[in-house]
Design a protein around this nucleic acid. Sequence first.
DNA 1: TCCCTCTGTGAAGATCCTGTGACGATTCCT
DNA 2: AGGAATCGTCACAGGATCTTCACAGAGGGA
Lengths: 291, 291
Amino acid sequence: MTDSITASDVAAPSGPGGGSAAMRIAVLDRDSGFIQVLSKRLDRLGWEHRVLASPVPADAVVAMRLSALVVDLAVLGPQAWEWLERLCGALPDLGIVVCTGPSTVAQRVRGLRLGADDWITKPCHPEEVIARVQSVVRRRRRPSGRTTEAKPLMAGEVQILCDRFQAFVNDESLDLTRREFELIELLAAAEGRVLEREEIYSRLWGYTMVRGDRSVDVFVRKLRQKLEKASPRWRYIHTHFGIGYRFAAESLDVNSVDVEVPASVPVAWDSGDQGKLSRSHQDRELTTDAL
Amino acid sequence: MTDSITASDVAAPSGPGGGSAAMRIAVLDRDSGFIQVLSKRLDRLGWEHRVLASPVPADAVVAMRLSALVVDLAVLGPQAWEWLERLCGALPDLGIVVCTGPSTVAQRVRGLRLGADDWITKPCHPEEVIARVQSVVRRRRRPSGRTTEAKPLMAGEVQILCDRFQAFVNDESLDLTRREFELIELLAAAEGRVLEREEIYSRLWGYTMVRGDRSVDVFVRKLRQKLEKASPRWRYIHTHFGIGYRFAAESLDVNSVDVEVPASVPVAWDSGDQGKLSRSHQDRELTTDAL
DNA sequence: TCCCTCTGTGAAGATCCTGTGACGATTCCT
DNA sequence: AGGAATCGTCACAGGATCTTCACAGAGGGA
């Protein structure tokens, strides 16, 4: 059961997982020529992608769990601005690249201010579209990506192995579901800081929490149950009333020193390899492209 | 006196938002016309900015602690690519916007792949440059913003940890509720200034206080109780009759030097001149208040 | 000194928040 | 298709927190 979680699952927007892989984008456009050429490139890159021909309600975009969206505002008609604003509000972590015909400075500024991450004017080369999408996604991912690099997190009796998407107590799996694991990973990575519900929600679900949503609470409860069963002498998730939750291992044994360990990570974080990767990658691209 | 409240003061104490404030950018370019127009806009926006006329070594850029850098690659000559790569490697969190003359698709793609966050082609409207810089910075800040503001405030025996939404004395939590914490944080951040009731109220509750509302007083009392219990030899919150409250740690030990520390971040810079200011506290209260 | 206003205090009621169990919807696997 | 696992929503109950109120004491000006 544990093993059923595959790498492809990691495609989650804010997903901690894999590096440059697992790109998932959608193109909202009707320009068949443009779409065709772009799709071809995306295929070659191995990016999951999807073409949308008509204005999709913002809620539907949410469900797609995209890394980025390329959109021609012309398709949306007069409600384009409103749509853009709603989408950016709901999905603060989604990369949005507007790729549309001739526009005025004012229009571009407006789009960017509303939350678009980039604005490309057609006609344009698909390679540039891709490079800009990459740039947008890279920018978004950088800070969250560094925390999670297969280094096991430890707290109390619990060991969190990111590369297995599972937590263990005495080498026994807690049988966490995907959401449960993402939650414990997020909390543990916060190193004892309090995370607000809204932040937890937006990091796990990828869009902003609506007031009254109890999902976070429910998953906290499920996590607590499994932690309690596997490690009864410890408390891990602490409620901060009116704010959110904090992860820190606290022993219930009175005689023990009751050390409060947030979550230690034997990390020595890198920074080099990602850049290196993308560079060699890009050299290859440039030579073959021969522009 | 009430009018001394400025827009910049209103930045929410713990609020993650605060997008436009504290922007700090540099422009590396030689196009005097462009620079002039851009500078003017930046001034009006209140962004700190700085113009660099010649290729600055990447290391020097590091020291500037910028939010973003706008650069014309032409200034850099043939080493532009290498420079760009070095810079992006050294400062993965710096927003880099290339703003340069006509270029090929391949050049733009190369720049973006090397780590640039955006690429604008001159001639361009300064407003668009600004909008794109904002977009870049906004995107970069969101996830890391919360971790950055982790400067603990210190006053007397009390330590305020913003990322835990809690205050501590000797590593023991005061068990502050959300409002109580917001209040102590607000007061402590004022660095010894007197805050009027109306200001406190509007910052914590988000709307203006109706006359006769005693909420602030009640929460001050709760805070005082908890502070008193945890740190009996100190006074922290001082009433200013007819005005409001002031936060400053004052020792009650007579023999002690009675150092009054408003609330300082535990960095190296301070401690010297405090003693000079404090004579008998009674007198000081009257003179410094200067109403 | 007197009087009026402002502040400290305690308590009670209202309000909001969280824990919890259960249910239907959806997805995934066989 | 059938069944199981997982997910998201809902309603309810018990607490925690917030707000309001009344009263007493302190502060400041005439």
